[in-house]
Amino acid sequence: MATVSLDNIRKTFSKTEVIHGIDIDIADGEFIVIVGPSGCGKSTLLRMVAGLETVTSGEVRIGGQRVNEREPMDRDIAMVFQNYALYPHMSVFDNMAYGLKIAGRSKAEIAERVAEAAKLLQLEPYLKRRPRELSGGQRQRVAMGRAIVRKPSVFLFDEPLSNLDAKLRVQMRLEIKQLQRRLGVTALYVTHDQVEAMTLADRMIVMNDGRADQIGAPLEVYANPRTRFVAGFIGSPPMNFLDAGLVNEPASEAATLGIRPEHLQITTGEARTGGIVLYTEALGAETLVHVKLPDGAMVTVRQDSTAALPEEGSAVGLTWSDSDQVFF
């Protein structure tokens, strides 16, 4: 168990700076998700914490100790890779025991710790198999088991679920969360999936082009996105952006008004703006209505499936409450 601190972390690849100074203090046992589009530097940041990439400037501290110069093995971390990175020529047992064997633990202790992890992850029937004889979800579990048996202070996850199908992903997401709670270990989790970020994180770091645009609890980030990028990235469907001048909002100097799809209402009464319904998507529990505004901008309205469905091609009025709008 340990805290992790990043202090103005920067990374340069042959003169190009890709991480432009990240600061965060992570509490012991906290689950932090680093989320962002591909190429934003989130994996690089994680690999710097792991010690797989050098830190160009700034300081990484684990448990209060500067670890910039330490080898990955001396940082008391464990990492789960996107492609699992299992040792293909070893059985599941040997995969999980590898780190302990190198550490020179006794056979009895190794057997006990692997058995413990295997039980936790329901891997007991597979201990003698090779990785290629396992399904994706099972491989994923072995990778987690390998991380668990070493009892590290910090868990690092590099997009661990992106090779799984949608259903398994939801299931494993829950398992990871439970496991982290039970072990009480600090976790850093990289993903490009904002749903994973929202569901797993105690706090999340939304990264954009090598910068942390916002760091905060998921709901706080959702409700008060600090930048337009964060507003557009977190939430599905994304936040709607309207020209502030067009909807007569003199309240702010800002040019753009942001409003979440679920905060927009189609109204027959007094409307703040209006448009033509292009098409509707009934998803069962909810319906998405795509409306084209007079200036050509598209907005999405998310409404309950019980609400009246406007006809495609018809003109509708839109309204929302002031408390839900955000300016950029």
Binding site: M73, M79, F81, A85, L86, H89, Y98, G99, I102
Partner: peptide, 27 residues
Amino acid sequence: IPRSVIEAAAIDGARFWTRFRTIVWPL
């Protein structure tokens, strides 16, 4: 040999020669 397998071994505590003997050579 996938780079991440080598990296996983490095995190697991294997130094260069151990990695070579237990991971690289068998693969």
